[in-house]
Design a binder for these strands. Structure first.
Lengths: 136, 136
DNA sequence: GATAGACCTTCCCATCATGGTAAGGTCAAG
DNA sequence: CTTGACCTTACCATGATGGGAAGGTCTATC
């Protein structure tokens, strides 16, 4: 199987497959005489694993750890659970930050009349010159 | 006022002030004879505006638009509101995605016993070989 | 005055994960 | 044998920020 077919089969672009190889996330595959990379179903399986991990928001580094645990038959699943739990915490922190931003913006938009008058509570807030929109 | 003082006064690092100048977000300030950048309270005000906008998660490009509207006395505040509203939508989409990730991960962690047995529902899900943890 | 240390300048490199492009080699179908 | 689709490597770009080097400037102290 060529890299393009492996890409189609795994959902990881050929570009990224080469990149993952380059950074050592996956092992260099065998090559044909004409230097083409050759993949089998095992490699595609690994690529799918990586893709799913990335989709769930794990970094490459976290993915690498999960991959090692996946391939280690003697692993303790507690380690995996710890990685996932830490990731959940990080995601929840991020969500809280975003929600805080949304809350502020919604308040500002609510205060904004959207007419042609030159005063705008959103811009006033950004400029730090507001007093009316505070603490309500 | 030197760049370091402007940085302290605005909360934007000297590094970023130069960067903002380089990409045209802010205007090049006057210089001393010895080529030092000189800032006044107006520039610091602009930098604070930028900082607040970035803190609220607006991109540099969005910040640039907001800055232009802020400095345009004839602006319509509806434009500002539109930018903010679109930004809210984008943030909410992002939040929903993150929440979906968290939901999946929490489910997987819940199913994971964290013992020393080699089967782990989290890894099974990542590998796409699961059937038990689906649709529940 | 001279010297030390804190500041400034520009320039280059790194991040993280991904995409693009260019120049050239290979393969399969017609 | 040509054409077109594929592969190879290598380099550049993103967005926003930090780090550092090499060299110039300012200020306070001796």
């Amino acid at each position: 199987m060529n890299i393009g077919q492996a890409a189609d089969a795994s959902g990881v672009s050929a570009k990224m497959i080469r990149y993952y190889e380059q950074i050592g996330l996956i092992r260099p595959p065998t090559r044909t005489d004409s230097n083409y990379r050759v993949y089998g179903s095992d490699e595609v399986h690994v690529l799918r694993f990586i893709r799913r991990s990335r989709t769930l928001g794990f970094s490459i580094e976290e993915t690498s750890a999960l991959l090692a645990l996946w391939q280690d038959k003697t692993r303790a699943s507690g380690e995996v659970r710890d990685i996932a739990s830490e990731h959940i915490s990080a995601l929840e922190t991020k969500i809280a930050e975003l929600e805080s931003m949304v809350g502020t913006l919604k308040h500002l938009v609510h205060c904004c009349q959207g007419d042609n008058r030159p005063d705008c509570p959103i811009l006033d807030d950004l400029a730090g010159t507001n007093s009316k929109t505070k603490g309500h």
